[in-house]
């Protein structure tokens, strides 16, 4: 009999990080500050060699880019690009996984078959190719991450649905429900509390959190692709700056530019996203 682990700290961390992401995104400036050339690093000949580092400029705690624009504004705008689409995609996956688990327990063969066919079809599609095609199909002036995130969630859902259905199957499926019914529990309590909350929660929350994290990384990947090819981004308008831009600026640190702080800042943001997903996972464990 193993020791009971405390899930509360993980839940607090997960909610704080998610809340921070959403609030930061909500308070992000629509346009970043204009360039201030005093905020840049120069060599002895007065040539710009990069931005200034963490806390070197008042009000720019993440430093600046090579034009003197504070990077925390990039981080906030990046949060506003990813926060809601990632959360919505995670919730969609959670809803589909819940549905799949419930159908397995409710013993509705035709609906189970429909979900399995859906899972087989969507699971067979090459995820990145579909995402790129959908990105290209979106109208030129429609630059939002949400449709891409939803497509990603649908394509990621078969794995979550399979796992939830397998968990429900391990419970005993309809036999488990029957046993609970014999104990006098109502259908609502059986399905929502005993099946979903008590047993499917770890699977559902983990899959939802993973998809949230994947959507953030997808946005970074797509934006980085656009930056590298000097093309307009698929996921946000021109006035917005993705976290990919921090990563792109950070990459120039390897070329001798003084942009190491941008690299560190972007990696911290990526790490925060990963920690948030892991915290949700730990918080939802069975014990």
């Amino acid at each position: 009999m193993t020791r009971r682990t405390n899930r509360l700290p993980w839940l607090v961390v997960a909610l704080l990080l998610l809340g921070g992401l959403i609030v930061t995104g909500m308070w992000a400036p629509e346009f970043v500050d204009p360039p201030i050339l005093e905020n840049v690093a120069k060599d002895e000949y007065g040539t710009t060699v990069g931005g200034l580092g963490f806390f070197q400029v008042p009000g720019a705690w993440l430093g600046t880019n090579e034009y003197g624009v504070p990077l925390h504004q990039f981080a906030a705008q990046g949060a506003s690009i990813v926060a809601l689409p990632a959360a919505i995609a995670g919730m969609l996956v959670m809803a589909l996984a819940t549905l799949s688990g419930l159908v397995r327990c409710a013993d509705v063969p035709w609906l189970d078959t429909v979900l399995q066919v859906f899972g087989e079809l969507t699971g067979a599609l090459p995820r990145m190719v579909v995402v790129v095609v959908v990105s290209l199909l979106l109208p030129y002036d429609y630059k939002y991450l949400l449709p891409i995130a939803l497509v990603w969630a649908v394509l990621a859902s078969p794995a979550a649905m399979d796992e939830a259905a397998a968990s429900a199957g391990r419970l005993g499926g309809a036999r488990f429900v029957e046993a609970l019914r014999a104990h006098g529990f109502s259908a609502t309590r059986i399905y929502l509390y005993h099946v979903v909350w008590m047993n499917l929660r770890p699977v559902i929350v983990r899959q939802g959190a993973e998809v949230m994290m994947q959507v953030v990384f997808l946005e970074i990947a797509l934006s980085y692709l656009a930056l590298a090819s000097n093309s307009p981004s698929f996921t946000h308008a021109e006035n917005m700056h993705s976290w990919a831009e921090l990563l792109y600026l950070g990459y120039s640190a390897f070329l001798g530019r003084e942009m190491g702080h941008a690299l560190i800042a972007s990696l911290i943001l990526v790490a925060i996203t990963a920690v948030m997903a892991q915290s949700f996972r730990f918080a939802a464990r069975a014990r």
Binding site: R170, F176, A179, A182, M198
Partner: peptide
């Protein structure tokens, strides 16, 4: 009260 065929059905694994 009811005790089903296998204990695994009677007990909630979570």
């Amino acid at each position: 009260t009811y005790s089903p065929q296998s204990a695994s059905s009677a007990l909630n694994p979570g």
